[in-house]
């Protein structure tokens, strides 16, 4: 295009290692939500997985806490252009949760307390790529960041990492979630800069 913005360019930060295109590094943990933060009590919390055949598997908070968890250190990338290096989480791998769920469905619609939804291929939740995270930087996950538990899928833009997660619906067909119906990309790979549909 050849456009140069006169006088711009003197203060660039050094990210240390490559960032996805169009992202900048932040030390903060900004928040993006479409509405109020829901109040989710762990006593009533549950995670519900529903397959394409209507089979249901549930986990209570106590059951989630009794499931082997992992420490995860990962970079995260928000579609609003901030990225954060080396964030530290603790959570249960989705591989463990879906291990005995029988399905041939290929797509998941993730549901959250408060009504948020987001969609992604089931394959992106498996093979060590996704967790139900309940700690951030060694502390219980704060409600504003999705606590008591959020989905963590760090290889996709962070709107896919649904806060206040309460369930997965497995489908044979891909159904758009909340932001996806408002013009955001169906898949959301930050390295391919899949921001908008």
């Amino acid at each position: 295009m050849g456009i140069v913005t006169r006088g711009f360019g003197g203060r660039r930060p050094d990210p240390g290692r490559p960032l996805p295109p169009g992202q900048f590094l932040t030390q903060d943990f900004p928040v993006l939500s479409a509405g109020p933060t829901p109040d989710v009590e762990v006593d009533r919390w549950e995670l519900v997985v529903t397959t394409e055949h209507g089979h249901v598997r549930r986990w209570s908070w106590g059951e989630l806490m009794a499931t082997p968890a992992e420490d995860v250190v990962t970079d995260i990338h928000c579609v609003t252009r901030w990225s954060k290096h080396d964030t530290r989480w603790r959570g249960v791998s989705v591989d463990v949760l879906l291990g005995d769920v029988e399905t041939t469905g290929e797509f998941v619609l993730v549901h959250s307390y408060g009504g948020y939804t987001t969609n992604l291929p089931l394959a992106d939740l498996l093979d060590g790529q996704a967790w139900i995270a309940f700690e951030y930087e060694g502390e219980p996950l704060e409600p504003v960041h999705g606590g008591p538990a959020r989905l963590l899928v760090p290889h996709l833009y962070f709107w896919k990492s649904a806060k206040w997660v309460r369930g997965f619906e497995i489908h044979d067909v891909d159904e758009p979630g909340f932001w996806e119906t408002y013009g955001y990309h169906g898949y959301g790979d930050p390295w391919l800069e899949q921001r908008y549909a």
Partner: peptide, 28 residues
């Protein structure tokens, strides 16, 4: 973020339907 969290909490406590409360935050 702090402002939006506070206000969204207050209007929800005042009885507004959370589904009618739309929020946007300004990051740094």
């Amino acid at each position: 973020t702090g402002f939006v969290e506070t206000v969204a909490g207050l209007v929800t406590e005042l009885g507004h339907d959370p589904a009618r409360v739309r929020t946007e935050r300004f990051g740094g």
